Computed example of a mutant assay.
Amino acid sequence: MRDKIIIVDDDEDSRKLLVQYLTKHGLEVISCSYNNHDHDTLEMFYSHDPDLIILDLSTPRLAGLELCAEVRKVSDVPILFMSYHSDDYIKISAFNLGGDDYISKPLSYDVFHARIKALIRRNRRAFPVNQRHLLHFPGLEVNLSTHCVISYGKEAILSTKEFQLLVILAKNPNRVFHTEALYDLVWRDNKLGDVRTVMVHIYNLRQKIELRPNKPLYIHTVRGAGYKFNGAVSLGAIETQSETFS
């Protein structure tokens, strides 16, 4: 299976040359520009589950930094920045927001390819192939590649929005997400909607993954703030709930 990468760059000519070069060297390449709506780019990320993302920083509005921050909320996929910018502040911002490497333009294609291979190889060592797409918790398994969720040994059928909410929370255990923040992350294409839809989806999600939805083990409500995923779920707590439930 070929390694899969996503390239986001507003320079169409540069993007086409990169796609041709990297495809020739055995990579599967998906590309787009920042002129797409940001949520479309993120949907592409969810759909293709890439091994690496390449973000250009040459546009004045530095949309690549924003996109990097959004991706880092749900994934540890390697992110490589490329840019004509020589400002150290831009480079530091890229790393602080979760970037893994930075290469200056104009590119040496051979060096660029070597950087890509090194990042993918390093990520594979940190996250073995049979584990890197899985989130494991006692009683719950989330497959980021297939979108399959196994709760208490049974598959839970989630909607796209329910799955996105679960991934955001489970990838950041014990972090409190305000309701408005979750709405912005998942419903970014509908800024005029009602944030109460988050509560409805959390309710439905609990019905599908919790053994006792009225006393959830995984997704906790933080009164006056929002929600968090309990990163300290124990087998003992699950057994106690199972005994009570039965």
Score class of each variant (00 low, 15 high):
Ser159Arg: 13
Ser159Met: 07
Gln164Met: 12
Gln164Asn: 14
Gln164Gly: 04
Leu165Pro: 13
Leu166Glu: 03
Leu166Arg: 09
Val167Tyr: 03
Val167Gly: 12
Ile168Tyr: 11
Leu169Trp: 13
Ala170Tyr: 00
Ala170Asn: 09
Ala170Ile: 14
Lys171Cys: 15
Asn172Glu: 04
Asn172Lys: 09
Pro173Asn: 01
Asn174Lys: 10
Arg175Cys: 00
Val176Cys: 15
Phe177Gly: 07
Phe177Arg: 04
His178Cys: 02
Thr179Lys: 15
Glu180Asp: 10
Glu180Leu: 11
Glu180Pro: 02
Leu182Trp: 03
Leu182Val: 11
Tyr183Val: 06
Val186Met: 10
Val186Ile: 15
Val186Ser: 12
Val186Phe: 06
Trp187Asp: 02
Trp187Ala: 06
Arg188Gly: 07
Arg188Pro: 03
Asn190Thr: 07
Asn190Ile: 02
Asn190Leu: 05
Asn190Trp: 01
Leu192Trp: 06
Gly193Tyr: 05
Gly193Ser: 09
Val195Lys: 15
Arg196Cys: 02
Thr197Asp: 04
Thr197Ser: 09
Thr197Lys: 14
Val200Gly: 05
Val200Lys: 14
Val200Trp: 04
Val200Ala: 07
Ile202Glu: 00
Tyr203Lys: 15
Tyr203Gln: 15
Leu205His: 15
Gln207Trp: 02
Gln207Ala: 09
Gln207Tyr: 03
Lys208Cys: 08
Lys208Tyr: 06
Ile209Gly: 12
Ile209Gln: 11
Ile209Ser: 07
Glu210Met: 11
Glu210Gln: 13
